[in-house]
């Protein structure tokens, strides 16, 4: 420790923020969809956000392997794709629950009780309401995330459950939602 060289010269690899998914397999249907998306743009690279959406829709998150595949498809370097996955918060870097609950935390929703709603949902699912970032319940059923403005400020608080949009959500509504999702199960 006394010689700074001794402890600081030990270099370490950069950690990949994305989870690995060795079984990543691309279906013919996804291949075709990606070709269609590429055809929408004069330059291939433009398709990358849309392709990421398609991949996430099918696999639930963006894995290291999918980034390699996407960058190959679009003649990009994998870092070009990683830059986007980590910039645009809708892209998941790790597997998440079957139901992704996004609760809007920005001002109008906060004025309308979003923090109380978020805390309630977290408590119901055994999650920490004060933790940062996305959290997934132990049973991998729910992921809860406090997100920025969902553009439904007039019907605060707003919430999304996967792609389903819910407005004026009360704690009772939230309980019902959790109940319904559990009923549907896996």
């Amino acid at each position: 420790m006394s010689d700074p060289r001794e402890f600081s010269s030990a270099v370490q690899p950069m950690v990949n923020p994305l989870a690995s998914s060795p079984q990543f397999h691309v279906s013919a249907e996804l291949e075709a969809e990606v070709q269609e998306l590429i055809s929408h743009y004069p330059e291939k690279r433009s398709a990358v956000l849309m392709v990421l959406h398609e991949v996430q829709e099918r696999f639930g998150f963006i894995s290291q392997e999918s980034v390699m595949w996407i960058s190959g498809k679009l003649d990009l370097q994998p870092i070009n794709v990683l830059e986007l996955v980590t910039f645009y918060p809708m892209f998941r870097q790790q597997p998440v629950g079957k139901y992704q609950v996004k609760i809007c935390r920005t001002l109008s929703c906060a004025l309308g009780g979003a923090y109380e709603l978020h805390e309630h949902v977290c408590n119901r699912l055994g999650l920490d309401a004060h933790a940062h970032g996305i959290q997934t319940s132990k049973d991998k059923m729910f992921s809860v995330e406090f997100v920025e403005c969902l553009a439904s400020c007039g019907t605060a608080p707003a919430m999304m459950v996967n792609e389903d949009f819910q407005e004026g959500v009360t704690t009772q509504n939230a309980d019902l939602m959790i109940h319904e999702c559990r009923k549907k199960g896996n």
Partner: peptide, 26 residues
Amino acid sequence: FIHRGAGAYICGEETGLIESLEGKRA
């Protein structure tokens, strides 16, 4: 054609939006 963003307010800024449409960080 439709191009979907992915959760970045800055894409509302027109040149950020253009960068995003080009497949880059906005």
